[in-house]
Design a protein around this nucleic acid. Sequence first.
DNA 1: TATAGGGGTAGAG
DNA 2: CTCTACCCCTATA
Length: 240
Amino acid sequence: MIPDNFYHHLMTPTSSSSLQSISSSSSSWNRVQDKQFENGLVMYSEETPNRWEKIASHVEGKTSLEVEQHYQLLIDDVKAIEAGLVELPSYTDDQLIHHRDTNNNSQISFGSKSKTSSETERRKGTPWTEEEHKLFLIGLQKYGKGDWRSISRNAVVSRTPTQVASHAQKYFNRINSDKKEKKRSSIHDITVDEASLVQANNQNTIVPVIDRSQQNMGASNTQSSYPNHGGAYQGFRFPM
DNA sequence: TATAGGGGTAGAG
DNA sequence: CTCTACCCCTATA
């Protein structure tokens, strides 16, 4: 059950024509290309000379210019999120609220097993959305691998450092072992492209892959998946 | 049905 | 806090 306003927060209806200008006709990115692009991003840091050339060399059928533009789109997107933060429409179950308190943030509270009765209860697991993953990638760029705390605080605000680390683990795990045999699809294969073109255009030719996982999740878990929030969840902060 | 994907967690560093 | 290994659940082949 994806809300209609799922991606709409990304758009700036005002007079933003920045991203539209580049969406000429050649801005069609495959999942493959996007994946390659994504890999390239993590492969070459921002300081890398001729970064886009390097990355482009890993992306089939894309020039360094196109890659750079694609990146700009991504950045623009993320900036929009950061700017208008305060409401990522997705996964905000019902009442988005709580600001992550500066004191005991991080490490989700319910992690500390209140073994009052039994249960080392394993928490449900909230699938990462593309927005989160995008933010994650950006955070990765900005703060580098390992600084999950910064990424959590400044990029993927909706996730705790632990969650980010966990996600990163799977992400890199996949990147490293991917190529050649992968039996299944994953969110890590998708990422940027989906949301990017969604916010740039509409539905294009491809069908959102996340659709299945999203709706399945929604159908199965509903939103009652959160036993308690402990206050350490969805925090909002402002980059300074 | 078997298992890869994926999130959370425990424990060590 | 970060890293690594592991557990457990679910979607997918």
